[in-house]
């Protein structure tokens, strides 16, 4: 498929991204670069200096809300993308409301209980929708431990075991790898398998 054909089939697609941290910001940037039609992004948090080791923000954006700032950055990369941004701590009700028209949903939360909540919400409220979820990305190295597993309409991407903690922080290379693997799964869902 030529890039022009890829862009024209992605133009009509909407991807919902829940969380604009390490997974969400990097995944959104990749999807914007390839010409996704619309992104619905949500995050309640503001950018801190400690986020810049992996999240797609800049030093002069510290203190701003992540969702609208990510929108700014995405539009600087590709002004053709339509971005809906929400500063909100998502509840199951919000997820249904904000993501009901999305073709695919990307789970990009930090906390395990939020990951469980969104997967449970999407699988029970939208049994036909595909959800891509990041699980296990802390530390560095171990490229070949990163993998994608499919459970019908649920895709789990990551090493499945490295939880973030004080001694096992998330870092740009591995978080970037997982978030781009997630974006890659989104393309497979939207365009069909290529490889």
């Amino acid at each position: 498929m030529k890039f022009s054909e890829i862009k024209s089939s992605l133009k009509n697609k909407t991807v919902g991204i829940a969380g604009c941290g390490g997974l969400g910001s990097n995944c959104a940037v990749s999807l914007a670069r390839v010409g996704i039609g619309k992104l619905v992004i949500a995050d309640f948090d503001v950018i801190e200096e400690s986020n810049l080791n992996r999240q797609y923000f800049f030093f002069d954006q510290i203190g701003k809300y992540k969702a609208p700032t990510l929108k700014e950055n995405l539009l600087r990369i590709n002004p053709a993308v339509s971005v809906e941004d929400y500063v909100i701590k998502l509840t199951p009700k919000d997820i249904v409301e904000l993501y009901k028209d999305c073709d695919v949903i990307v789970e990009a939360f930090d906390k395990a209980e939020m990951k469980e909540m969104i997967v449970e919400t999407v699988l029970s409220e939208f049994p036909q929708k595909q959800i891509v979820c990041g699980v296990g990305l802390a530390g560095w190295g171990g490229n070949n431990l990163l993998r994608t597993e499919q459970y019908r309409n649920l895709f789990i991407v990551g090493d499945r075991s490295n939880e973030t903690s004080e001694d096992n922080p998330p870092l740009a290379p591995r978080v970037g790898a997982v978030s781009n693997m997630m974006a890659n799964v989104v393309l497979e869902i939207l365009l069909g398998k290529d490889k």
Partner: peptide, 10 residues
């Protein structure tokens, strides 16, 4: 049966 363990990090 799938028992998928969710862990923090994002």
């Amino acid at each position: 049966v799938d028992v998928i363990h969710m862990i923090s990090g994002g």
